[in-house]
């Protein structure tokens, strides 16, 4: 199993490198420091979302509400800034709101036992509804200049701030998963939650924290999005939902739970970002971009399941042509 996981990451990595080579051949401006940095800027928002989604999918759960949580966060930050005048307090409140949303999901899933798909299908609309009611459906753009730092600022000259935030969070998540007891339990629950219970693991607690974690990631993502576009709006973040799930699966996280790594997810996210950026530079129409991205996902998943496919073909030939 470890062998299989490794080989998927390797295939994905090769695919990624091949992609970079092709893009740099087709679009001369692709392989420049500035463009690559802007790729990392574009991928950070849904990358951070994908970090939370990865942890959830490892527990064999799913969270469809992360996009809505990000949107709600932007509204909470904007409104609490208008009300308090303190940017720091506003951002902290926004992240708290994300954590609460995650806790709400977590309680319904872990304590009451409603399937994650149903809970988050409901809360996806519910959280979005709260954001719409709070904002009366309007976009809010009353932010001070400093607010734009997270989404539009640069560190050390030309490194986008959100790239740094994404990297730090990715490393943090990776450490949480691989080093802490909680991380170990996350994998155990995803593999076999019954056996986890029989080993004294408090599965409900583990799951609750998983959903809170994803809520916080979604909130941070929302904060960066609204900082970049200088606006708070209920539907910001919604577009990233499916993309973050797709990137996670592309990165080798088993949709049935139990295995997956943050490293894989980061590569999965990078593949999507490079594709989008490269295709833009080449001048492929946005409509064809979707088509190519979907195709890429299918191709990589097919290649990494090649051994199974090969076996089926061999048996088919044996049965029908011998």
């Amino acid at each position: 199993m470890i062998g299989i996981k490794r080989s998927h990451e390797l295939i994905l990595l090769l695919f990624f490198i091949g992609l970079i080579i092709i893009m740099s051949l087709l679009a001369p401006s692709f392989l420049t420091i500035n463009n690559l940095l802007s790729v990392t800027q574009q991928m950070s928002e849904f990358g951070i979302l994908a970090l939370g989604v990865t942890v959830i999918i490892i527990t064999s759960g799913i969270d469809l509400s992360v996009g809505s949580i990000a949107g709600l966060t932007t509204i909470v930050i904007a409104m609490s800034y208008g009300w308090s005048g303190s940017l720091v307090a506003a951002i902290l409140l926004g992240i708290l709101a994300g954590a609460l949303c995650g806790a709400f999901n977590g309680v319904l899933i872990a304590k009451i036992g409603v399937p994650p798909m149903l809970v988050t299908l409901g809360t996806m609309t519910f959280f979005n509804g709260i954001a719409l009611v709070l904002s009366k459906g309007n976009a809010i753009s009353d932010f001070p200049e400093e607010f734009y730092f997270a989404g539009q600022g640069y560190l050390f000259g030309n490194i986008p701030v959100q790239t740094v935030i994404f990297l730090v969070l990715a490393i943090l998540t990776s450490l949480l998963l691989s080093k802490t007891p909680w991380g170990r339990r996350v994998y155990a629950v995803g593999n076999n939650s019954v056996a986890a219970v029989f080993s004294g693991v408090q599965v409900d607690k583990v799951l609750l924290y998983v959903y809170i974690f994803a809520g916080i990631m979604a909130a941070i993502s929302g904060w960066i999005i609204s900082s970049r576009v200088s606006t708070a709006r209920a539907d910001l973040g919604a577009v990233y939902l499916m993309q973050s799930i797709a990137a996670t699966v592309l990165g080798g996280t088993n949709i049935a739970g139990g295995s997956g790594t943050i490293f894989g997810t980061v590569i999965g996210v990078s593949v999507f970002a490079v594709l989008a950026n490269g295709l833009n530079l080449i001048g492929v129409s946005p409509f064809a971009q979707n088509l190519l991205m979907g195709l890429a996902l299918i191709v990589v998943l097919l290649i990494s399941n090649m051994s199974i496919i090969k076996r089926k073909i061999t048996i088919f030939i044996k049965l029908n042509f011998n």
């Binding site: 199993m1 802490t180 007891p181 170990r184 339990r185 994998y187 155990a188 593999n191 076999n192 019954v194 056996a195 986890a196 029989f198 080993s199 004294g200 693991v201 139990g258 295995s259």
Partner: peptide, 24 residues
């Protein structure tokens, strides 16, 4: 299979699953 073991996890990680906190 169902209640005793995390099948896709290693021998080591199965053995220590119940006492992770004390190993920190």
């Amino acid at each position: 299979q169902l209640e005793g073991l995390i099948g896709k996890s290693s021998v080591c990680q199965n053995i220590t699953l119940s006492i992770l906190k004390s190993l920190c």
